Computed example of a mutant assay.
Amino acid sequence: MHDHASDGLSHPHVFLGAQHAANERRTLAVVVLTVAMMIGEIIGGAVFGSMALIADGLHMSTHAAALGVSAFAYYYARRHAEDPRFAFGTGKVGDLAAFASGLALAIVALFIGYESLERFFAPEPIHYTEALTLAALGLAVNIASAWLLRDSHDHSHGHDHGVDHVHDHSHAAHDHADDHHDHAPADQDLNLRSAYVHVIADAAVSILVVAALLLARAFGWVWLDPAIGLVGMVVILSWSYGLLRAAGAVLLDMTPDEKLKETIRSRLETNGDFVSDLHLWRVGPGHRAAMATIVSANPRPAEEHKAQLADLPGLSHVTVEVLKCPHAD
């Protein structure tokens, strides 16, 4: 038998993160701040004849574009949250944006590495005062952006967010003895994380640049500037890899929580029942879906099996199929 919604033939599939609206506003604010900085540097460079200002402004445009993708992903997911064309809602739109942002971050890192290698073999004169001013200004903007994107409530716990179906959404507290699941990586809003990584990466590079410029000016170590650029490339590539790996795992429906999967199996395999097929995947920040096939000598309604899982946190959509054991008397 197949499961049916308790209120009729259909039910909503809205699996947005608990802080979706707040994260959308925060990301949009960072986009505005970054674009303002970008425009100011380009105009300032044109007015004062500084190619360094113009170049940094153009560099800021790459971050503005990536952050703009994150902001648009929030808008799109919210706008189409109840669109029936999305089988399991739009909760994974942010993960798609995070994957694209990870790729953009890798490209930026490789570009920094390329420029650094060029300067090793063809050193350019460094205008220390102007360069330090730019790095300090960029660092200030990145610190403000990082504060706006700080991860305060990112690790949602999969509670019901406007959808009131007991058989699909867990409402119980998280203090059950057998449900000690780690919510940090699986429930994280990767779209917010990707925006945060962009500004932190830029801030890290700014800090390294300031240190390199101060040392180069003090001791004449001109080679330190491109060397720090290569270090920055390696650091940013490692962050990019982590983001791509996390977002890719969600997009490919990899099991987000092995402990939760085993808890589901142990709860369903009672009274001689056997779970012949079990799938667990993430459908949005703080939301997981489960699909199970149970083989039983004494089949019971699917609703009874789902009731065994009702208090599991973060389990937002459950489908149960019950089959009669072919060898049962």
Rank of each mutant, 00 (worst) to 15 (best):
K261G: 01
R265H: 03
R267H: 03
P285C: 05
L268I: 07
A289F: 14
V295K: 12
S296Y: 09
R265T: 05
A292V: 14
F274K: 11
H279R: 13
H287W: 11
D277K: 02
I294H: 12
L268S: 09
I294T: 10
T263M: 03
F274T: 13
P285L: 05
M291I: 11
I264D: 14
H287I: 05
S276L: 02
G272Y: 05
A289S: 15
E269Y: 01
S266C: 01
I294N: 12
A289K: 11
G272P: 06
H287R: 02
E269M: 04
D277F: 06
E269D: 07
S266A: 09
T263I: 01
V295S: 12
H287N: 13
V295Q: 15
R282V: 00
P285D: 06
L260G: 03
I264R: 01
S266Y: 00
W281Y: 13
T270R: 12
M291S: 13
R288I: 04
N271I: 04
V275S: 06
A289G: 09
I264H: 06
L268W: 05
L260M: 14
V275A: 11
N271S: 13
R265C: 01
G284D: 06
V275T: 09
A289E: 15
G284A: 07
I264G: 08
V295W: 12
H287V: 04
H279D: 15
W281C: 06
R267D: 13
R282T: 06
R288Y: 13
L280Y: 06
G272K: 03
S266G: 00
A290K: 02
D277A: 01
R265K: 12
G284H: 04
A290P: 07
H279L: 13
T293G: 00
I294K: 09
A289N: 13
P285T: 07
G286Q: 10
D273M: 08
R265N: 03
L278W: 12
V283T: 15
S296V: 05
H279N: 11
V283G: 08
